[in-house]
């Protein structure tokens, strides 16, 4: 048991996808889950019941005693949004690498070419990053980037504004300019289930304003993006995320990732992390 790792909420299934009971892994340990009479349950390997929360279309559990509630996303509750269960993608990388990649914009022109970015628009301007002590979350704001096709709903290239939030070690919430409603934020999340330290299941979820696209078009768009990310994530060495400086070289564009790594270290979250001593 390691409280710093166990006492968090983790996504383990998309609720609409639970038909029969099944087994999965959480932090390297077998768990089972299912749904009966509309209520989800999760058991650990010994058959003991684990706490559950059903939120954002997903089932959450914890192998420990979470000392706070699962985070909320108030913006996602506003009326008129389409809530999109994207599905899951298993990736052979540390859950922390998956989150860090989600926080990165500098890769857009090279990995999501002509969709989320395109040369020569590669420059990343300075933005604000903060660990908000009062809520114990990492936030990056005033992030701006030129995008040829920012979302399924975008008609052409726009400079998109982003805000990133890390409310839990293996989750991130992105707020980005909504192409059809420039005054509002689209919400795109990345919920990561740590199967093991070097293998994860990623559950993206979205709350968008988009009256035009079909559900499957929105899902396909996000899946395409994440497949492109996966080709990166499975080819980074080491597979675990180095938390100590020295192994990798950050620049100003990487301020969010620097803050994320620093925060993980501060809260003692070492699952999927590579420390110098290791």
């Amino acid at each position: 048991m390691n409280a710093a790792i166990d006492n968090h909420w983790y996504p383990v299934a998309m609720i609409s996808g639970i038909d029969a009971p099944r087994e999965t892994l959480l932090l390297g340990k077998k768990i089972s889950l299912g749904r009966e009479d509309g209520t989800c349950w999760v058991l650990d390997a010994s058959g003991a019941e684990l706490p559950t929360v059903e939120r954002f279309g997903h089932l959450w559990t914890s192998p420990g005693q979470p000392n706070r509630d699962l985070f909320t996303i108030p913006e996602a509750d506003s009326p008129g949004r389409r809530l999109v269960d994207v599905g899951s993608v298993k990736v052979k990388c540390s859950p922390l690498r998956a989150v860090e990649n989600f926080l990165d914009i500098a890769h857009f022109p090279f990995v999501h070419t002509d969709i989320l970015g395109a040369e020569p628009h590669t420059e990343v301007d300075r933005y604000d990053v903060k660990i908000r002590e009062e809520v114990d979350e990492v936030w990056a704001t005033k992030v701006k980037f030129y995008q040829p096709q920012a979302a399924k709903s975008a008609a052409g290239g726009i400079t998109t504004e982003y805000m990133y939030r890390v409310p839990a070690p293996t989750c991130s919430v992105l707020y980005k300019t909504c192409p059809p409603r420039p005054g509002e934020w689209d919400v795109i999340t990345l919920f990561v289930q740590p199967l093991t330290e070097e293998w994860c299941e990623v559950w993206p979820w979205m709350a968008l304003y988009d009256d035009e696209s079909t559900m499957s078009e929105m899902v396909s768009f996000q899946q395409l993006i994440f497949m492109q990310d996966r080709s990166i994530l499975e080819n980074q060495l080491p597979r675990k995320l180095p938390l100590d400086p020295g192994m990798e070289v950050p620049t100003q564009a990487d301020m969010t990732s620097v803050a994320y790594r620093r925060w993980l270290k501060k809260i003692g979250y070492t699952y999927g992390a590579q420390l110098v001593a290791a």
Binding site: H107, F110, V111, V124, Q252
Partner: peptide, 18 residues
């Protein structure tokens, strides 16, 4: 990943984000 360019000596000579 980020388009960093390395010259023939292996030195980074261009970072597209900057």
């Amino acid at each position: 990943y980020h388009g960093w360019q390395y010259n023939e000596a292996g030195s980074c000579e261009y970072i597209p984000a900057h």
